[in-house]
Amino acid sequence: MMTQHHIDKKRAQASFNKASASYENNAVLQRHVLGEMFLRLKLLKINPSSILDLGCGPGNAGPDLKNFYKPHDLIYLDFAYEMLKKAEEKNRDHFLKAFSSRTTQQFICADMEAIPLEENSIDMVWSNLSLQWCNDLDRVFAQIAKILTHNGLFIFSTFGPSTLHELRSSLASFSEHSHVNQFIDMHDIGDALIRCGFSDPVLDVDVYSLTYSTFKEIMYDLKHIGARNALQGRAKGMTGKGFLYQLEKLYEVYRANDKLPASYEVVYGHAWRVNKPHNESSIVKFYSKQ
């Protein structure tokens, strides 16, 4: 069923394709979250022979995944072809420098809601800040569970519902259209993991605030990492200068210490694909620094 909060995948693809050249210089938060994911990953006991980087973007995780695990197969998947080309360029160069590596790399342009991989073929699925671009989280989780091997690991980060709350509140005061994605609560993500057959999910949340001198800088950053409005319920025409001027005035209420904040709630999680008896249930562990 199509709703105003569903993502128009073609529009989202176009936005990320266009942003592929500017993404690296503007993805400050994405790089930080990637580092946080590796800190969490190093605490887990796993030695994967095959890894899928789901929603890989420009492939920033690839070099560290290769160095840390030296997998036999490393697969990069993204629905934006230009982003995938960036990932191939980055990781091809790294692969050639690491001439002793035996890792085979594959680059697949596909939607994470239709993962074209065989059952029981992947030991670890890694996904950094990409799940928020799917419309059916259960569908994605079910497919990940299907392709994972027994005792396979799914580790991810995604945005929670407090993300960009300043922008969302400012927009809601004068526009009836959908402008910002509806992000999923940590507890609902944990429930979805259990429904889709994962075991022992562990989730935690952290909140980050990026600060800017002007509202235009916030919008510039969002545009240049591909985070444009791709919702089906968006206003179909151009919003225009008048719209942005009104939005900028409303956003000023959040200015503090001469800076404008843009808040991001990041949910970190991991879970295991373990075949348990039907009468055995898992407990989801939630942690919060708030």
Rank of each mutant, 00 (worst) to 15 (best):
Ile194Gln: 10
Cys109Gly: 04
Ser209Ala: 13
Ile155Tyr: 12
Ala19Pro: 03
Val253His: 04
Lys97His: 06
Phe198Cys: 10
Glu113Trp: 02
Ser100Leu: 11
Glu248His: 06
Ser162Pro: 00
Ala110Cys: 01
Ser263Glu: 02
Phe79Leu: 07
Thr239Asp: 00
Asp78Ser: 05
Tyr254Val: 12
Asn275Thr: 14
Ala192Thr: 02
Asp111Lys: 02
Leu34Glu: 00
Ala21Met: 12
Lys18Asp: 04
Tyr208Trp: 13
Ile108Val: 15
Val284Ala: 09
Ile46Ala: 12
Val140Trp: 07
Gln232Phe: 10
Asp206Val: 05
Ala110Thr: 08
Leu167His: 01
Ala227Asp: 02
Lys90Ile: 05
Arg11Ala: 14
Ser121Ile: 02
Phe174Cys: 08
Asn91Ile: 08
Gly57Gln: 11
Met186Asp: 06
Ala192Arg: 02
Ser209Thr: 13
Ala19Trp: 01
Leu231Asp: 03
Asn181Phe: 14
Gly197Val: 02
Arg139Val: 10
Pro201His: 05
Asn181Tyr: 15
Asp8Ala: 12
His224Pro: 02
Lys97Asn: 00
Lys42Asn: 11
Ser209Gln: 15
Glu88Gln: 15
Gly269Ala: 06
Leu148Lys: 10
Asp78Tyr: 06
Cys134Thr: 08
Leu117His: 08
Cys56Ile: 06
Cys134Trp: 03
Ser175Gly: 08
Asn181Gln: 12
Glu118Tyr: 11
Gly62Phe: 05
Tyr264Cys: 03
Lys216Ala: 15
Lys236Ile: 05
Ser127Trp: 08
Ala256Phe: 07
Phe141Thr: 09
Trp133Gln: 02
Ala235Arg: 15
Glu36Cys: 15
Ala172Tyr: 14
Met83Glu: 05
Asn120Leu: 07
Thr163Ser: 01
Asn17Lys: 04
Gly226Lys: 03
Lys66Ala: 15
Ile51Gly: 02
Ala27Asp: 06
Glu118His: 11
Thr149Arg: 14
Asn17Pro: 12
Ile75Gln: 07
Ser15Val: 00
Ser49Phe: 15
Leu244Gly: 11
Ser157Asn: 10
Leu74Pro: 10
Asp206Gly: 05
Asn91Glu: 08
Cys134Val: 15
Gln4Trp: 08
Val125Glu: 05
Ser20Glu: 04
Gln30Ser: 03
Tyr220Trp: 10
Thr239Arg: 11
Phe183Asn: 01
Asp64Met: 14
Ser22Asn: 07
Phe16Lys: 01
Tyr264Lys: 04
Gln13Met: 04
Leu131Ala: 11
Gln132Glu: 09
Thr158Met: 03
Lys236Thr: 06
Arg168Val: 01
His165Ile: 08
Gln132Ala: 09
Asp258Phe: 11
Ile75Asp: 06
Ser22Gly: 05
Thr239Pro: 00
Ile218Met: 02
Asp64Glu: 14
Ser22Val: 03
Asn275Val: 11
Tyr245Gly: 13
Ser157Cys: 12
Arg255Phe: 10
Lys18Cys: 05
Ser169Lys: 13
Asp53Lys: 05
Ala262Val: 02
Lys70Ile: 00
Arg31Ala: 12
Glu217Tyr: 01
Leu137Ser: 14
Asn120Met: 09
Tyr254Gln: 12
His177Ala: 13
Asp221Met: 13
Lys9Leu: 11
